[in-house]
C-alpha cells in the first residue's frame, strides 16, 4: 500500500497497542484481562502492520519460522510450568505447594506462577492470530 498517512499512523500507533497488550498480560492476575486478551491485542497490532506494509515486509519482521517457534514455545512453557507442579507437589499446575513465591497479595509480584502462565498464553495467542491471518491472505488461487 502506498498511502503515506496510513503508513505514518500505523508506525506511530503500533508500539502503543503492543505496550497496552503487554500491560494487560502482566497485570492479568490482579486486574481484568489476562493472557488471552493481551495476546489478542498484540496479534491485532501485527495484523495492522501486515495490512499497511504488505505481507512480504511483515514476513521479514515476523517470519513463519519465528511464528512456529513462538507458538510451540508458548505451549511448551505452559506445560513445563505444569510439570514442575507434578514433580514437586504431586499434581498438575501446583502453585504454592510447588514452592513458587506468593509475594504480597494485590501487588504485581504475587500469585506465584500465574504471571508466567499468562506470559506463555500471551505468546501463544499472539503468534496464532498472526499465523491465521498470514495463511488466510497468502493462499494462491488454484
Amino acid at each position: 500500500m502506498k498511502d503515506q498517512v496510513l503508513k505514518t499512523i500505523a508506525r506511530i500507533i503500533t508500539p502503543f497497542i503492543q505496550l497496552y497488550g503487554i500491560f494487560i498480560i502482566l497485570n492479568g492476575h490482579i486486574s481484568p484481562g489476562g493472557g488471552f486478551a493481551g495476546g489478542t491485542m498484540i496479534g491485532t497490532s501485527l495484523i495492522l502492520y501486515t495490512l499497511v506494509f504488505g505481507v512480504d515486509q511483515a514476513k521479514r519482521k515476523f517470519s513463519e519460522k519465528a511464528s512456529a517457534f513462538a507458538e510451540s514455545g508458548g505451549i511448551i512453557l505452559y506445560i513445563l510450568i505444569g510439570v514442575i507442579g507434578i514433580v514437586v507437589a504431586g499434581h498438575f499446575l501446583a502453585n504454592k505447594g510447588a514452592g513458587f513465591d506468593m509475594g504480597t497479595p494485590g501487588s504485581l509480584w504475587s500469585a506465584g506462577m500465574i504471571p508466567l502462565l499468562m506470559i506463555a498464553i500471551g505468546i501463544k495467542v499472539a503468534s496464532t492470530f498472526i499465523t491465521i491471518f498470514h495463511t488466510l491472505i497468502e493462499v494462491k488461487d488454484a
Binding site: I24, P32, G33, F36, A37, T40, M41, G43, T44, I47, F129
Partner: peptide
C-alpha cells in the same frame, strides 16, 4: 469478558 469481546469480536 468485555475486554476479550472488544479485542476478539470487534477486532480480529
Amino acid at each position: 469478558v468485555a475486554l476479550t469481546e472488544a479485542a476478539i469480536g470487534a477486532g480480529v
